[in-house]
């Protein structure tokens, strides 16, 4: 791709030193373990934390993928599995980052509170291409429900992914690709 840097292979769980080196705009290829969680799972997780319960899946050092996949067709670990809008998880994310969460994968804008929490945690917010659910499903090698099975698509799943294409949207220094990219191409002033 002319003008586009090559994809950087990144192993998951994310090494903290690697997380700090990644920069907004880096194209990456993620391989390893992610945990899926979206609206209902975040709410239930944080309600549990409020009651002093331990999280039902590991958070420290891990990466959460904001996704609710389609049911798995025969012979496949998951159905279509693209990212959902991350902003709805903004009220929960800073707390999880303080518990050691080091990576988030989703799409769309984050709040200023999340951006600051990413910096404080030395974490990374990755973007996956919204709407590319079939392509991303092809990168999922296995899927296993690990918590909140009753939530259906919103249950927490442990996915093993291989060569999952993503881009660094917010890096550990707080740079935000959405802001940078839009400024470069806007012609409305």
């Amino acid at each position: 791709m002319d003008g586009t840097p090559a994809r950087i292979p990144v192993a998951l769980p994310l090494d903290r030193a690697v997380a700090k080196r990644l920069r907004a705009g880096d194209l990456v290829s993620l391989t390893g373990v992610v945990y899926t969680a979206r609206d209902a799972a975040h709410r239930r997780l944080v309600e549990g934390l409020d009651r002093g319960e331990a999280p039902p899946f590991p958070i420290d050092g891990q990466t959460i993928y904001y996704v609710g996949p389609c049911p798995a067709p025969p012979g496949r670990p998951v159905g279509s599995a693209g990212p959902t809008t991350s902003g709805r998880m903004d009220r929960y994310a800073p707390r999880l980052l303080r518990l050691g969460l080091v990576g988030m994968i989703g799409k769309g804008k984050r709040s200023e509170e999340v951006r600051q929490a990413v910096v404080e945690a030395g974490a990374v917010y990755f973007g996956a291409t919204g709407g590319a659910g079939a392509l991303i499903a092809a990168c999922v090698a296995s899927a296993e429900v690990v918590a909140y099975e009753d939530l259906g698509t919103e249950a927490v799943r442990r996915l093993v992914v291989k060569d999952f294409p993503a881009v660094v949207l917010i890096d550990a220094e707080g740079s935000d690709l959405y802001g940078i990219g839009r400024e470069r191409y806007r012609r409305d002033r």
């Binding site: 996704v67 609710g68 996949p69 389609c70 067709p73 496949r76 159905g79 279509s80 599995a81 693209g82 959902t84 919204g130 709407g131 590319a132 659910g133 079939a134 392509l135 499903a137 092809a138 698509t153």
Partner: peptide, 12 residues
């Protein structure tokens, strides 16, 4: 890919 495999193009 979606058309070829019958998988939904988007999970939503």
């Amino acid at each position: 890919l979606a058309r070829r495999t019958g998988m939904a193009m988007c999970q939503d």
